[in-house]
Simulated assay, not measured.
Amino acid sequence: MKKLFVFLMLSAAIVAQAQVSFGVRANTLVNTSSSKWKDISSAAQGAIRSPKDNAGFNVGLSAKIKLPVISLFLMPEVYYTNFKSKSTYVEANGNQVELAAKSNRLDIPVLVGYDLIGPLSAFIGPVFSTNLSNNETFKNFKEEGSKNFSVGYQFGANLKISKLIINARYEGALSKDQRKFVNNVAGNNSKINYDNRPSFFILGLGYDF
């Protein structure tokens, strides 16, 4: 009991000495999951040519908790994320169906970072996501349901210029956001399973208060 008390007191002292700052963030998301896009360069070109189909955005808040003594920091964040991803499927009768799954998500990255040199820092950690909407309809297909919770990961770097933050990161998936689209046309019972947890290259700006 005495050891636990000492541990709690030390933890409270560390938190009390930690430097905490807050900021706002706005990012552009480029979908890099589609087989059509082989690298970040071509993905960016696709996002410029057809932003509604290949790009998204998120806006949110970020906190940086700089731990005392060591150069590590914690960076919890919360974002509203909006994007659309497209895939083409071939039905049994040979018809091609292009699905565009829309997503509105609440994303909560919990990142651990390290101050590298000067204004440059790097970070890595999980991101927890939950859908804010589901059961979308697209052409003859209706979304039968979607997974409410999924997990991904992020790694990247921040460059701080005064109070301005330039942010670049990559987001991958650790679990799937499995969706099922069902054809509403009478007599057509085709169903398509679709994973809507794409990978993203994320680039954005922020401001720290």
Rank of each mutant, 00 (worst) to 15 (best):
N54C: 02
N135F: 08
I108C: 03
I192L: 15
L120S: 05
N196E: 07
A63N: 01
S87C: 00
V69H: 03
K3L: 14
V151A: 10
S33Q: 13
Q19V: 01
E143K: 05
N54V: 02
L159D: 03
R179H: 14
I14N: 00
Y194V: 10
K3T: 09
G23D: 00
Q45F: 11
V97E: 06
G187I: 08
N104Q: 14
T28N: 07
G60V: 04
R169W: 06
L99G: 06
V30M: 09
F209E: 00
S42M: 04
Q178K: 15
K147S: 15
N158C: 07
L159F: 15
S162D: 13
V90W: 01
V15N: 02
T137C: 00
S62I: 02
K64N: 07
A100G: 15
V20S: 01
P198Y: 10
A16R: 08
K160D: 09
L99W: 10
L164W: 12
G156V: 06
I65P: 01
G187S: 12
I192R: 11
K64H: 04
T137N: 09
L159E: 05
V151M: 13
S199N: 13
S103K: 15
S133N: 10
F7I: 13
F22Q: 01
N104F: 04
S199A: 13
Y80Q: 00
L205M: 09
N135G: 07
Y80S: 02
Y194D: 13
N148S: 14
D195I: 07
Q45G: 10
R169M: 11
R25Q: 12
G56Y: 05
S21L: 03
V59K: 07
F201V: 13
V69L: 11
R25E: 10
S121Y: 07
Y89P: 06
L72Q: 03
K66G: 06
N148T: 09
A168G: 14
G23H: 00
Y194E: 08
S199T: 01
K3Q: 14
G113A: 08
F5T: 13
N193Q: 13
L8V: 08
Y80W: 12
R105V: 08
F155Y: 14
A92N: 14
S85A: 11
I48G: 03
L106E: 06
L61C: 02
A157D: 04
